[in-house]
Amino acid sequence: MSASAIRDEQGFTVAQHLICLRGIVWREALRFVHQRERFISALVRPLVWLFIFAAGFRQILGVSIIPPYDTYVLYEVYVTPGLMAMIQLFNGMQSSLSMVYDREMGNMRMLLVSPFPRWYLLIGKLLASTAVSVLQVYAYLVVAWLWGITPPPWGYLAVLPALVLSGMMLGALGMLLSSAIRQLENFAGVMNFVIFPMFFASSALYPLWLVQQSSPVVYTICRLNPFTYAIELIRFALYLEINWTALAVVASMTVLFTAGAILAYDPARGLIARRGAGGA
């Protein structure tokens, strides 16, 4: 090779990797700030559930003492971790949709022509969307606190790693779906086929023992739903406990979905390579 070919073969430094990562997270945060209606709807959605749905259900559903709670809890206390996870579920799917949209608009293309390794770029993108979802969850927790839902003070800190992990899992799932399934390019499709089934067939709205009593089949589905484990991880962490099963499931699903998403965006084997870039 000629001299010109050798000159630029040096890899990037660690500092440059961090600049790149910071840039990706910073852009996602800027977009979120600029799209004010997205933030408001992200906050309003769980609050509607909390204020209206939980108020109605409170009279119907009695929640017995189950871990991690050490006393009877009001329904809105029970449902709060589910709603926190719902925020992340919506955010994960929304950012996956924005990837599809980005890909068509070309923003995703700009990300992928960066000389950094593609897995690094995709994980950066995942971290960025997770960071945004964590901000949304804390905004929700502030309002919930005003509503009288007061987990232990340290719980707010203990829940952070749980939220990062569950945010990564749901973001990676969204990323995998965005690369794999073209039909999901409108939000109604994602609502019907991903968000609703995952949300309702989980421990978000009712404890699983209650589900088991009414339908063993639905109970089994709930047990197989990774979203259930995200909720339980968050629920236990918020009350300063670790649900090891949930941790194991969420951690391994995060690895699995992330690997799947990286594979799907791999230039050699990926799904986009097989079906073309979209557009001309």
Binding site: H17, L30, S114, F116
Partner: peptide, 18 residues
């Protein structure tokens, strides 16, 4: 949704320039 400058800074970051 981003400003012109923000667009450029983002691209610079993607090339390790900050």
């Amino acid at each position: 949704d981003l400003s012109v400058m923000e667009n450029l800074l983002y691209h610079a970051a993607l090339h390790g320039i900050g």
